[in-house]
Each structure stands twice: as structure tokens, then as C-alpha cells.
Simulated assay, not measured.
Amino acid sequence: MSPLELVERYINRAANARDADSLTSLRWRGLGAIHALHASGLLSDVENDDALNLFVDTCSARHTELAGTSDDSEGGAL
């Protein structure tokens, strides 16, 4: 598996996280993996920047989606 495929896998996992706790755990593991790939020379500076930006944006978007889902669930219970 290439380094960019590994990054893509983390991004896809973040996009499909089932709950906030798993997303938080995945966020830390993904950031660590991307930094490690860059530090070992497997990602260029540009690839690293792009990967980090996309990963963080994906995590933020999914967090917003999950927060909206939990708000909807609570609203329906009343």
C-alpha cells in the first residue's frame, strides 16, 4: 500500500466514523500516521500539507454531522 493510499484510508474512515468517540480516536491516530509518513520521507511537504488539510477538514465535517445527528435524536425523544 502506498503512503497516499494509507492517508486515503484514514480519510475514508474519518468520513464514516460512527460516533464522536471513535472519530476522536481516529483523528489522533490519523494525524500521527500522516506526520510519521512525512517524517520518514514517504510524503513530500506538499503531499503532507494536502493530506493534513483534507484529513482535518474531513474530521471537522464528520464531527459536525455527528453533532447534528445526536441533536436530532435528542429532539425526537421529547
Rank of each mutant, 00 (worst) to 15 (best):
L4G: 00
L4H: 02
E8V: 01
E8S: 07
R9N: 11
Y10T: 01
N12W: 06
A15T: 02
N16C: 08
D19P: 02
D19E: 11
A20V: 10
D21E: 15
S22Q: 10
T24F: 12
T24P: 03
T24C: 06
S25K: 14
S25T: 14
L26C: 06
R27I: 03
G30A: 06
A33V: 09
I34S: 01
H35L: 08
A36Q: 12
L37Y: 05
A39M: 14
S40H: 11
L43H: 02
D45Q: 14
V46T: 12
D49N: 12
D50F: 08
A51N: 00
N53L: 09
N53D: 13
L54K: 08
L54S: 07
F55Y: 04
V56I: 14
V56G: 01
D57A: 10
T58C: 04
T58W: 00
C59D: 01
S60F: 08
A61Q: 14
A61R: 14
A61G: 12
A61F: 11
A61Y: 10
R62T: 05
H63D: 09
T64S: 11
T64V: 10
E65V: 11
E65I: 09
A67D: 13
G68P: 01
G68W: 04
T69N: 12
T69A: 15
T69P: 03
S70Q: 14
D71S: 15
S73H: 12
S73N: 11
E74D: 15
G76M: 09
L78I: 10
